[in-house]
């Protein structure tokens, strides 16, 4: 009912292929991160799903139906595509009222989403006086208007302050926990990995990965441990015996390919004092960049 299905979805602009035979499902009950560098085709894919752009070939459906065939679409799918898309001379309340009216959504629901997104006090101000963060909240209010089972958010954290970013994360987690399908695009891996259960990674219009976030981290990131010790010589010898190599940085040591629990146990057994010991997860962003960079090189070399 609320599953998004893409089947060989393709969009060509002249000779340029923006979206290249995308096939994937987005399932309800979890937050799916839609990742890719700028220009990878994320926004185009979302526009194709909403029937705003016409696919060259392939299909994009929600619960088996094309968006353009939905009678009251806002009751099924809520979308935030571009925070600037609301007319600046309207008030937020009028903007939402018009959207509500077209889908037979009662006016009191407008008041509810204004409250929920925290812009109720500014509801009668013209939208051009809004900051980017407030426009982003208005876009989210519009997406929530019809209480839809499917929510699409394109870069929702843009322009939000740290408090706003936490708010949007919790909102997305909450919506997914209620059994809704939540698809969130972003170009930042570290940001997305913090709240997404599942990842779809796009590069140059092609699907590069369709994987649970935990599995991606497990597979792609090599573990690394950072530590400090008062007896580096002894520790180094003990590590060498275990087949590990410690590399000295500025005041600390790093050991590749191992997790902290193993080093901790080893140091305890040998009686080596350890002053600091921590896992480092730096390679996640790197793994993502490597994955997408391969594709970027293909096209720049052409």
């Amino acid at each position: 009912m609320n599953t998004i299905q893409m089947r060989a979805l393709t969009k060509e602009y002249g000779a340029k292929t923006a979206v290249d035979h995308l096939t994937f499902d987005v399932l309800p009950g979890r937050v799916t991160g839609f990742l890719g560098p700028n220009g990878a085709g994320k926004s185009t894919t979302l526009r194709l799903l909403l029937g705003l752009d016409r696919a060259t070939s392939g299909t994009a459906t929600v619960g088996g139906l094309r968006y353009t065939d939905l009678e009251q679409p806002l009751l099924r799918v809520g979308a935030l595509l571009d925070a600037h898309a609301a007319h600046g001379s309207r008030t937020a309340r009028s903007h939402l009222r018009a959207l509500a009216a077209a889908n037979r959504i009662p006016a009191r629901r407008v008041e509810e989403v204004l409250e929920r997104t925290g812009i109720a006090p500014a509801a009668d101000r013209r939208i051009k006086t809004y900051s980017l963060g407030m426009r982003q909240r208005l876009g989210i209010a519009a997406a929530l208007l019809g209480d839809p089972g499917v929510i699409l958010l394109d870069e929702p954290a843009n322009g939000l302050d740290p408090e706003g970013i936490i708010w949007i994360r919790e909102l997305m987690r909450g919506l997914a926990a209620e059994g809704r399908t939540v698809l969130v695009s972003s170009h930042l891996m570290s940001e997305t990995a913090a709240f997404a259960d599942h990842l779809l990674i796009l590069g140059r219009g092609r699907l590069l990965a369709d994987t649970p976030t935990a599995a991606f981290i497990e597979e792609r990131s090599t573990p690394r441990v950072r530590l400090r010790t008062s007896e580096p010589g002894r520790l180094r010898a003990a590590l060498a015996e275990a087949g590990l190599e410690a590399v000295e940085g500025s005041g600390h040591w790093t050991v590749e390919g191992v997790r902290a629990e193993r080093i901790g146990a080893l140091a305890a057994r040998e009686g080596i004092p350890v002053l600091e010991l921590a896992d480092e997860q730096v390679s996640l962003e790197q793994a993502y960049l490597d994955l997408t960079a391969v594709h970027a090189e293909f096209t720049t070399a052409r």
Binding site: L50, L74, H84, H87, A102
Partner: peptide, 18 residues
């Protein structure tokens, strides 16, 4: 013309896709 202001047409067509 209001529909062509900052891509307002997209918002309109998501609410009335026909």
């Amino acid at each position: 013309a209001a529909e062509f202001h900052n891509g307002g047409l997209r918002v309109s067509l998501t609410s009335v896709p026909n």
